[in-house]
């Protein structure tokens, strides 16, 4: 079976990419096929890459405080472009400087999981394992 493909992306203007790169590398080391977008991606660019690369999951790293605007927009565009049924099959998760109180909101907008600062790469791998076996 071919490895699960995952997109790691940096939405918005934020340049903090230490976390995104570490997660991308840890996932790669664990056998996933990882595509990392680099910084400064618009929601449109992220969704286009996700579709083009046919990924099963999108991991969004954001430390700029724009998460409540950009993250739901990505889910909305994803649904719009691939249809609700297919979009449901793509797991969208996030991490970064995201206050606990915003997590409920993001989850209600279709973000499956939000990892807070201090999360181990192992915790993210465990989460993906539950999703993809």
């Amino acid at each position: 079976m071919s490895p699960v493909r995952i997109l790691i992306a940096k939405p918005g203007l934020d340049g903090h990419d230490r976390g995104a790169k570490i997660v991308a590398r840890a996932l790669r080391d664990a056998g996933y096929e990882v595509i990392y977008t680099g910084i400064r991606q618009t929601p449109e660019m992220i969704v286009a890459t996700a579709i083009q690369e046919n990924v099963r999951a999108i991991g969004l790293s954001i430390l700029s405080g724009a998460h409540k605007t950009l993250l739901p927009e990505i889910v909305r565009l994803l649904k719009k472009n691939v249809g609700g049924k297919l979009a449901k099959k793509i797991t969208v998760f996030a991490g970064g400087i995201i206050p606990t109180e915003d997590i409920t909101y993001l989850k209600s907008k279709g973000i499956t999981e939000v990892f807070r600062p201090g999360t181990t790469t192992q915790a993210i791998l465990d989460f993906l394992k539950r999703k993809f076996g």
């Binding site: 918005g12 203007l13 934020d14 618009t42 700029s64 405080g65 724009a66 409540k68 605007t69 950009l70």
Partner: peptide
């Protein structure tokens, strides 16, 4: 904020969600 650091006015599409954030 990031739009100011990257040369976008607050009204620019690139600035959405980022105005006054960091």
């Amino acid at each position: 904020d990031l739009p100011t650091q990257l040369g976008y006015d607050s009204s620019d599409k690139q600035a959405r969600g980022e105005v006054g954030r960091v």
